[in-house]
Design a protein around this nucleic acid. Structure first.
Lengths: 110, 110
DNA sequence: CATTATACTGTGTTTCACACAGTATGTCAA
DNA sequence: TTGACATACTGTGTGAAACACAGTATAATG
């Protein structure tokens, strides 16, 4: 592994951690995988299909999301929304995120 | 996996991503693993030994850190510092972090 | 009618974190 | 002085998860 690979890797790890929270937050509004991917991309968070789709299934399996398979606009899509449990967890997770941002602010300024 | 396990898991993922950047930044000053662990803990970032030590070795292997094994205060310790490559990468990584924070600010406010 | 965008599923492979165990020295109090 | 606790690091096994890659299929666009 070269140096720049390692740096690329750090950036990936940095982004990876926030994907779940971003997805949970955006799925306050019902959306299907592909549209969520586009939405995240617009926000500046590029996520591969091979990352996002399994992630959504995982979060559904963990009970933080719910999904339904429907045909809309002539096309079958799996729609995801945040579940009751997810909705209840979200404020705590946002607070946790705020804490991390504050903590990193201190660490990085040193 | 229960619901609260899943939530715990999201928080872990969130913290995990920032550990590398925090470590790199704090290792601007030479330190050994255990003292870095304590320092991170003081900043509010709890990291297990089984996580931090392999991480440091990994980052050294990737060329972002350098280490030397010395005896100080009667006790052998492995001292780590950020390498030249790491030092050069750090501003870019901090900027990346700033971008993520800004992006998440938008995402979470929606 | 061919290409691109849309939209999802599935299968390795590899990278890690994490749990756990092990080793060993220094410190401090009962 | 001895037992507990903090310090300080190494190593192994396991499981979770991203990522690369491949595959399937429909709609839109030129």
């Amino acid at each position: 592994m070269t140096n720049s690979d390692a740096i690329e890797n750090v950036i990936l790890e940095l982004r990876r951690g926030v994907i779940v929270l971003a997805a949970l937050s955006l799925l306050d509004e019902e959306q299907y995988g592909y549209s969520l991917m586009k939405r995240l991309s617009e926000c500046g968070l590029e996520v591969e299909q091979g990352t996002l789709y399994p992630l959504l299934r995982r979060l559904e399996g963990q009970g933080l999301l719910a999904s339904s398979w429907r045909i809309e606009e002539g096309r079958p899509r799996r729609y995801y929304v945040i579940s009751q449990a997810g909705r209840e967890a979200l404020p705590g997770l946002k607070a946790e995120w705020g804490g991390i941002v504050g903590m990193m602010g201190k660490v990085l300024s040193k």
